[in-house]
Design a protein around this nucleic acid. Structure first.
Length: 552
RNA sequence: UGUCCGAUAGUAUAAGGGUAGUACAAGUGAUUUUGGUUCAUUUAGUCUUGGUUCGAAUCCAGGUCGGACAACCA
């Protein structure tokens, strides 16, 4: 148990509480998404924090759906959230819903009314906003604020019984209309919504607001550390106020800075727009920062957990470079992905001194990063090969280690070849490249004594299979689309998806398994798309390889 | 012009009165049948002004800059 990494401030708080014997040393956290959208990488940070802290200190974590606003929520989202949390590798102690507490919450509200700490207000939303004042001016009360306990009790029950239309009345906490904290100026606790709830159906027509549901749910579950993001700091006095007046379990709220990633957006509202307005192919489009999108893109749970570990947890606003996420997936896949050969932008290479009709096989290990290579496979080799168009240059710059007339390169796992010439069509496109090979240079028993600088990948023409390959780039052209002038969608990268309908892949790739990452040698990491079929293979590029060759 | 939160290399994150460290990014060199990997190495930082102290990134005061807060959203 040598722990080199220093504690983040949340862990410090938890550790201190344990040392002080608070709650008998018990640690219970919760991850509380509203089921109104898919989880994204920002949620992953929260998930890793909440589950991670609990795990570290022998505690547990509840998965609680904050489903207090039926008009925005749906079971589709509940299901996807559960899938994503599980996929990330975490197990919750209890699957819970704020809606499970509606009866209790109603009783809590009645309790506050009895104490003279809540009242029914008939004002319109506009009137309430108007009476609330501004951050620099105090608000003022209205006549409803002085209703008797009996009247409030009666009206609140009538609200519950459906005797009023939506918006006719609200229940408000009676706190302080002059508070410098806007959230303490008689916040709304309940509103009327004659809406069908995905769990409680039509039982209720009044629903609690976040502020009157979240802390209370924490208390009901006896959550010891309720961790949320910075924007809830001003809510904390209210969180504490309800708990104090209700005399319920004293859960405490702590806030950390949410994750911001450059070249993307992270708000559910914006992500929903991208989906509904068809800028992307659903919530799990591989360009989306959603967990499901990253999964479809080929990210692994371990790489995302590693990322969340590396970015740290603090209270200052941050903007993380997406390059760090890419580093994490490269590091993971470098150690685990099997190497395969695929030619994305093909041009034909003919070995003129290799017999027509002949073929042989060459061996390539699955993973050179692992002792023993995790086995390997035989790859068919023949006179005609597909190679990458960019691996040949008619007029090469200096330090170009690939093919050019007169140059020699190694064909990965096979022979060294020397370029003798090429053919162009009328339009000036190179159509064929001619080489001779050095028979003694065969990989494994090379007796040629020749050393070449470059090694290129290839696929045998008669043995090649085809696949569609999808290359992805960042979804936005600017680092922080939400902070630019105008609509964020104006900054969408028009070239974020590049489809290669006809790439050539080595035969073994026909057996590719969904969910498994492959390294296409020299090209990057790829994974099978969920819509791939044996008849039409589709690969998504997860990330390119790091490219140390800077062209000028 | 209210209340609250924050400020450490390019980006993040440590150092809790006593040597400013780590990761990513960037540069250089070596290794390499992937211009990948790996290894070595370099560059680069405490917002500001005062105070307390033998000693301050750390404690105190003022300033500056950034952010949050006035949905019947969460």
């Amino acid at each position: 148990m040598s722990e080199e990494r220093s504690l983040n401030f949340i862990e410090e708080i938890v550790e201190e509480d344990i040392h002080e014997g608070k709650h008998g040393g018990r640690v219970l956290t919760r991850f509380p998404p509203e089921p109104n959208g898919y989880l994204h990488i920002g949620h992953a940070k929260s998930i890793c924090l909440n589950f991670g802290v609990a795990q570290k200190y022998g505690g547990q974590t509840n998965l609680r759906f904050d489903d207090t606003n039926p008009v925005k929520e749906d079971v589709e989202y509940v299901d996807s959230i559960k899938e994503d949390v599980k996929w990330l590798g975490f197990e919750w102690a209890n699957e819970l819903y704020a809606s499970d507490y509606f009866d209790l919450l109603y009783a809590f509200a009645v309790n506050l009314i009895r104490q003279g700490l809540a009242y029914v207000d008939d004002s319109t939303p506009e009137e309430i906003a108007e009476q609330k004042g501004t951050p620099t001016e105090p608000g003022k009360g209205n006549k409803y604020r002085n209703r008797s306990v009996e009247e409030n009790l009666r009206l609140f029950e009538e609200m519950k019984n459906g005797q009023f239309p939506d918006g006719a009345k609200v229940l408000r906490a009676k706190i302080d209309l002059a508070s410098p904290n806007m959230h303490m100026r008689d916040p709304i606790m309940y509103r009327i919504k004659h809406a069908h709830h995905h769990r409680t159906g039509d039982k209720w027509c009044i629903y609690p607001m976040y502020d009157f549901a979240h802390g209370e749910s924490d208390a009901i579950e006896e959550i010891t550390h309720s961790v949320c993001t910075l924007e809830f700091i001003p809510h904390r006095p209210l969180y504490d106020w309800f708990i104090e007046k209700l005399e319920i379990f004293p859960s405490k709220q702590y806030e950390f800075a949410r994750l911001n990633l450059n070249y993307t957006v992270m708000s559910k509202r914006k992500l929903l727009q991208l989906v509904t307005e068809n800028y992307v192919d659903g919530w799990d489009d591989p360009r989306m920062p959603t967990i499901s999108g990253l999964r479809r893109r080929g990210y692994t749970p371990a790489s995302i957990r590693d990322f969340c570990e590396r970015i740290g947890v603090a209270k200052r606003e941050n903007m993380i470079d997406v390059g760090l996420l890419e580093f994490c997936i490269r590091e993971d896949l470098n150690k685990t992905a099997w190497r395969r050969m695929a030619v994305l932008d093909p041009v034909k290479l003919i070995i003129t001194d290799y017999p027509e009709g002949k073929s042989e096989t060459v061996f390539n290990e699955n993973n050179p990063e692992v002792e023993g290579g995790e086995g390997g496979r035989e790859i068919p080799f023949s006179r005609e090969l597909w190679i990458e168009r960019e691996d040949f240059m008619e007029e090469p710059p200096k330090k170009f280690f690939r093919l050019a007339v007169g140059n020699m390169v190694r064909l990965k796992s096979a022979y060294i070849v020397k370029c003798e010439g090429f053919k162009k069509d009328e339009a000036g496109n190179i159509t064929e490249i001619y080489c001779t090979h050095i028979p003694e240079s065969r990989s494994g028993n090379d007796t040629s004594g020749i050393n070449v600088k470059g090694t290129i990948h290839w696929v045998s023409v008669p043995h090649a299979k085809t696949a569609e390959v999808r290359l992805y780039d960042r979804l936005f052209q600017v680092e922080d689309p939400s902070n630019e002038d105008g609509d964020f969608k104006e900054y969408i990268n028009p070239n974020s998806l590049h489809i290669l309908p006809n790439a050539y892949i080595e035969p073994d790739l026909a057996t590719a398994v969904p969910g498994k990452g492959y390294q296409f040698i020299r090209k990057g990491y790829f994974t099978l798309d969920k819509n791939s079929t044996p008849d039409k293979l589709v690969f998504n590029r997860t990330v390119t390889l790091k490219d140390g060759w800077v062209k000028k």
